[in-house]
Computed example of a mutant assay.
Amino acid sequence: MKSKIHEYPKKNIENMSKKIIVIIALAITIVSCNNNEKPAAAAKELKTAYVDTSVLMKEYTEANDIQEKYKAKADEKGRQLEAEINRFKQEASNFQSQAQANGQEWAQKKGAELQRREQQLAQAQQALAQQLQQEVGVEMDSLVTGVKKFIKDYGKEKGYTYIYGTGEPASILYAEEKLDITKEIVKLLNEKYKASATKEEAKK
């Protein structure tokens, strides 16, 4: 009896995180910061910069911590399921020889049982993947909202008219390197995240 169950995808959470990073990059592609200046003055004082969103998400500590958290969670929750799948595969591989020894009636009964278990394990795999995807999605949505607000506040404070997002999902094909503020944004975000984590530790 051949099993249709796939091995538990240990890299599932990594692939999911990569997709989410693309969504994040799209979400913060352009942050507009209006200075409420007169049109003529705004044209003279036009100040722009850009953030490489792909680099930002790779180097932002909080984003990396979320990904590591859910990779560990996927391994932990998947370990028990993987053991059950391995036991099932062992039984399924022994089914043919046992059927010959135990007869047709036993084979029909055992075959039906194995099919039910196969369906249950497949459903458990799907449910686990959906649960992890939903949980990581909630945290990443919150992270995106925080990053967008941070960049907007930064733009207002520094007097930028526009801060653009670049990276694979973005539509900006060229910009001067001197306008790249990615390192500054990553540095400030990481400092803010570290300070927040330190405060949380102090409360415990």
Rank of each mutant, 00 (worst) to 15 (best):
E68V: 08
E59W: 02
E84S: 11
K204A: 02
K44F: 14
I5P: 00
P169Q: 00
E201F: 03
L114C: 02
A40S: 12
N64Q: 11
M16V: 10
M140T: 02
E191P: 03
R87W: 10
Q67H: 15
M1L: 15
Q133Y: 12
E105S: 12
K194P: 12
Y50L: 04
A72G: 11
Q130L: 11
E118I: 03
N86V: 11
Q108S: 04
K10D: 15
K11Y: 11
P39W: 14
D65K: 09
S196Y: 12
L128E: 01
C33Y: 02
Y193T: 14
N102C: 06
I24G: 13
K38V: 13
D65N: 09
N15M: 07
A27W: 01
Q115P: 02
Q133K: 14
K203G: 08
K2T: 14
V144L: 05
S171D: 07
I185M: 09
Y8N: 06
N36K: 11
A27S: 06
A99C: 01
A195G: 14
L46A: 07
N64P: 05
A127F: 09
A92L: 13
R117A: 00
A42V: 01
A127V: 10
K4D: 09
N34I: 08
A41K: 13
Q119T: 15
L81Y: 09
